[in-house]
């Protein structure tokens, strides 16, 4: 398969991924600088007596959002638990697979020990199942369905595609290995391009927002 006179694989790991990385860097910096540089209003209210210091409140906010508050019910538990599964699964795949480590080493020069392919494959299947479960819940839950926008579905799709194409490439299913590898890299390119402009940007913002929430709540004396 050829694109612009080069093989699909050359296209994927040449112009496609390089352009995607540039868009990613541009978009992430743009959004981070414009968000963090926004003018802030001074909170003129007096904090409640005996509240923790701002850094402690920030940490507490981050910690509190790692789980589900008591009384939220089993479906919320499922959502949080399932979220943990695919986040950890994705981390295992991205950082534990030798080929991924080598890709990152090529970019940043850092290397670390890796896991056997069988473990990664298992992690990938679990992650895939977990992502599918997340989608099913999003589409069936009456409230969540109404809250969901195209942004959620696109973010889900660009996350799941690298997992699927990666599994296909490792097991040589459906096409020649080079073609599958090229599709896998192209799916990463898609992810990188979408990342800064969609909900995937939470990877950079999640702890900032949780810290901010934690500090606001603490100042107002919310008991945790």
């Amino acid at each position: 398969m050829t694109v612009m006179g080069m093989s699909l694989l050359d296209f994927a790991r040449g112009p496609a991924i390089n352009t995607a990385m540039a868009v990613f860097v541009l978009g992430v910096l743009w959004r981070l600088v414009s968000l963090l540089g926004l003018p802030r209003s001074v909170d003129r209210s007096r904090p409640k007596a005996g509240v923790p210091s701002a850094p402690m409140a920030a940490l507490a906010g981050i910690w509190r959002h790692m789980g589900t508050p008591r009384g939220f019910g089993p479906m919320s538990m499922f959502q949080v638990f399932n979220g943990w599964i695919f986040h950890v699964g994705l981390a295992v795949i991205v950082f534990g697979f030798a080929q991924h480590m080598l890709f990152l080493k090529g970019l940043f020069g850092l290397s670390w020990p890796v896991l056997p392919t069988s473990v990664i494959t298992l992690a990938a299947y679990v992650t895939l199942a977990s992502l599918v479960a997340a989608l099913v819940r999003r589409m069936t839950h009456p409230v969540l369905r109404l809250l969901s926008t195209g942004n959620d579905y696109v973010s889900w799709l660009v996350t799941v595609l690298p997992v699927v194409t990666g599994l296909l490439a490792v097991s040589h299913l459906g096409a020649r290995y080079e073609t599958l590898l090229a599709l896998h890299i192209l799916s990463i390119a898609l992810l990188l391009v979408w990342f800064p402009f969609g909900k995937l940007m939470h990877a950079f913002l999640v702890f900032i927002t949780r810290a901010e929430t934690g500090m606001t709540y603490a100042r107002r004396g919310v008991k945790t």
Binding site: V25, L26, G27, L29, S34, G37
Partner: peptide, 13 residues
């Protein structure tokens, strides 16, 4: 790309 991102961010700030 990084420079362009920083400039775009600074401009919106």
């Amino acid at each position: 790309a990084a420079a362009a991102g920083l400039v775009a961010g600074a401009a919106s700030v």
